[in-house]
């Protein structure tokens, strides 16, 4: 696999086009190996043909995102759950 990746941190902007809260600071669990941690600590590959966030532990995809004019597609199969802080 290419070593040309950055942190999940840099997925923050694209995801904020879809969600109203920052998802990179949320905790997620990898469906493949069970590792749990902030999505910001994942490894982000892309941008073409889409953005792929991989588990820093096992390398399996956690999240895939593709965008086109006026649309975004998200594949979240690699996440067993995400935990987001809510107001109050």
């Amino acid at each position: 696999m290419s070593d040309n990746w950055t942190d999940g941190n840099s997925l923050g902007g694209p995801l904020r086009e879809v969600f109203s809260v920052d998802i990179t600071a949320a905790t997620g669990r990898c469906s493949s190996c069970g590792t749990t941690g902030p999505l910001a600590e994942g490894r982000l590959f892309g941008p073409a043909p889409g953005l792929v966030l991989r588990c820093p532990h096992c390398g399996e995809p956690l999240l895939r995102m593709a965008t086109g004019p006026g649309h975004a597609w998200l594949d979240l199969r690699g996440l067993a759950f995400i935990e987001v802080t809510t107001p109050g």
Binding site: D7, G8, N9, G12, G13, R16, D22, T24, A25, P38, A40, E41
Partner: peptide
């Protein structure tokens, strides 16, 4: 530009 982004770092 768009921002500010990121709540982790």
């Amino acid at each position: 530009l768009r921002g500010p982004i990121g709540g982790y770092f």
